[in-house]
């Protein structure tokens, strides 16, 4: 395994990232941002704004028929245009992803334990009983009850919240420097959502891991990140500390977002008993 010396500069340095389809449509337009070690950045925007494509482009995983130009440097490695072999080395080690829908992001025919063991074995080289212990530990760390039962279960046999915890355990098993969370709570019930956010927050703080948190929900992003980047139609419209963006949004789109979030909140306030 390659030594993990800290390169100078930010952990993730995106400059002029542009994603185009083969038929010429621009889906992400000249996007630039950085994430330093241990920093937490929120990527916010409505569906179709290019958030998910951006996360895929960060790991060189754009679907067929799309190409990225510009520069994405992850822990000193240039991702755009890199050969598959170099990308495989970076994925998981420098950045891991938690996806929106855990049911489809987990192999339906593989027991949870094996799915976590795969990346874990690759990073640590553990085998047999040691590997099984490590898998159980990973499940305990994401606060799953009965880790042994979960390890033997198939994805459809456990609840959505449990699945997402398994997906989180899988991502963390690689001990990445950057955790990319792509709408990790959107598919969950509201009550489970809050728990999941808490868990993510705690685990990431413990490890001093950098986070790129992608969401359409301003409230969720505000809870777990320090800084936000607002995307609209593939373009960055505003960037700044969470507090500034929420209290004094500059761009018109951001103002609409904040107003929308506040309206929901006040509706709750009005209905709650005094």
């Amino acid at each position: 395994m390659t030594p993990r010396d800290t390169p100078p500069g930010p952990l993730l340095d995106v400059r002029g990232l542009t994603v185009r389809t083969d038929d010429g449509r621009t889906l992400v337009d000249d996007l630039s941002f950085t994430v330093g070690g241990g920093e937490r950045l929120g990527l916010i925007g409505e569906s179709g704004s290019g958030k998910s494509l951006t996360t895929l482009a960060l790991l060189g995983l754009l679907p067929d028929g799309m190409t990225a130009t510009g520069s994405v440097e992850l822990a000193g490695t240039q991702i755009v245009g890199a050969p598959e072999k170099r990308l495989t080395a970076v994925r998981g080690r420098d950045a891991a992803v938690v996806f929106q829908e855990p049911l489809t992001a987990l192999d339906p025919l593989m027991r949870m334990g094996r799915q976590i063991a795969e990346p874990l074995a690759r990073r640590t080289g553990l085998k047999g009983r040691d590997l099984r212990t490590a898998v159980t530990d990973a499940l305990v760390r994401v606060r799953l009850p009965e880790p042994d039962r979960i390890a033997h279960a198939f994805p459809h046999e456990i609840s959505g919240g449990q699945r997402q915890r398994v997906a989180l355990a899988m991502a963390l098993a690689c001990e990445p420097s950057l955790l990319i969370a792509d709408e990790p709570t959107t598919a969950l019930d509201v009550s489970v959502q809050a728990e999941m956010l808490d868990l993510l927050d705690t685990l990431v703080r413990e490890r001093e891991m950098a986070v790129l948190f992608v969401s359409h929900d301003l409230a969720v992003v505000a809870k777990v990140t320090d800084r936000v980047l607002v995307l609209k139609d593939g373009r960055a419209v505003e960037e700044g500390p969470v507090l500034d963006v929420v209290t004094a949004p500059k761009a018109g789109y951001t103002r609409a977002l904040v107003a929308g979030a506040r309206k929901l909140e006040s509706a709750l306030d009005l209905r709650s008993p005094r």
């Binding site: 790991l59 598959e84 996806f99 489809t104 987990l106 795969e118 690759r122 690689c174």
Partner: peptide, 26 residues
């Protein structure tokens, strides 16, 4: 086209390994 293939790829699974562990069983 399934998400779990992308998920496996993001965790650094190589193509041959993806075929053997995820694609053929499915």
């Amino acid at each position: 086209a399934r998400d779990y293939i992308t998920a496996a790829r993001t965790s650094g699974t190589s193509w041959p390994r993806t075929v053997a562990a995820h694609i053929l069983p499915n």
